[in-house]
Design a protein around this nucleic acid. Structure first.
Ligand SMILES: [Mn+2]
Ligand SMILES: [Mn+2]
Ligand SMILES: [Zn+2]
Ligand SMILES: [Zn+2]
Lengths: 141, 141
DNA sequence: GACTCTAACGAGACTACGTGTCAATAGCAA
DNA sequence: TTGCTATTGACACGTAGTCTCGTTAGAGTC
């Protein structure tokens, strides 16, 4: 359950009938290079030759295709991440920014529980965890 | 586990040494009147006599005091809600906007599970559920 | 009730982030 | 190669929230 490669995404794009343009290739490289997760503004400045609007358009397209997902940081900032298509969530290190995906079958039963007690039908959810990764914990006293 | 009254919040404010100003009273009334949850801009226009900066300052203060909490809507928009001090989460109706609080002990075991498999220490989290309330489900075909 | 100290306020400029428009460009299928 | 049109970039615009700073008004004290 790790990042999808830029190459695989390019193939997905043309398979779905989207054009494989230079800006798109460019942005995919940049995103892969920015690491674990990145904010839109980071892409804009890492790819100054690509238009601002194109960055946001591309982010939306990749989200629709399911290869990029949103990550809500602990302070509420919206970030993005290259990630697998399956439904999953994130654990984020508040110290170094490391991110990891996880999926949790046990969460499903939490949802059923809430449906019972509230009468709602739950159709979607967001779950983000914040904490400290093992590396950061080790390097602190 | 329902909304805290404006009165109770006013008492909390002075108990903590904050001044009970006209704008603050005003905003508390407005928030209570806006219902389930509300966006900052909604408060700004519902209380035109209060300065924009004061609205945001007050929202932050009330969050620090724990009587207002953030609600992330399904489209990512940030909203707020008068709510109990205990830790809890939200179920939101995507059709009518109804919101309800819930807390889930079972979620704790999900967190422990993730800590084991990732090596992270989880210190905080966000969970928001989106779906449809019983009223909206009943009124649809 | 008046005095004082300073927390809190409002006006308005400003920044950050994202969207809309539209003429120009460049994939890509024929 | 050619032609169609999806996609692009420049730039103007919109919206959400922040900052500054001179002014105001809580609230404790006399
Ligand atoms: Mn994800
Ligand atoms: Mn809440
Ligand atoms: Zn870390
Ligand atoms: Zn509803």
């Amino acid at each position: 359950m790790s990042q999808v490669s830029p190459d695989a995404i390019e193939r997905l794009l043309s398979r779905r009938g989207y054009r494989l343009t230079a800006p798109r290739r460019n942005l995919l490289e940049v995103m892969a290079g920015l690491g674990d997760h990145f904010v839109a503004e980071g892409i804009v400045s890492a790819a100054p030759e690509v238009g601002r609007a194109t960055v946001f358009r591309t982010l939306r397209l990749l989200q629709d295709l399911g290869v990029v997902c949103q990550v809500v940081l602990d302070d509420g900032t919206l970030a993005y991440r290259l990630a697998p298509e399956e439904h999953h969530h994130h654990v984020l290190c508040v110290e170094c920014g490391a991110a990891e995906d996880f999926s949790s079958p046990a969460l499903e039963s939490v949802l059923r529980e809430v449906e019972e007690s509230t009468g709602f039908t739950v159709e979607a959810h967001r779950l983000e965890l914040y904490g400290r990764c093992s590396v950061c914990r080790a390097s602190d006293h």
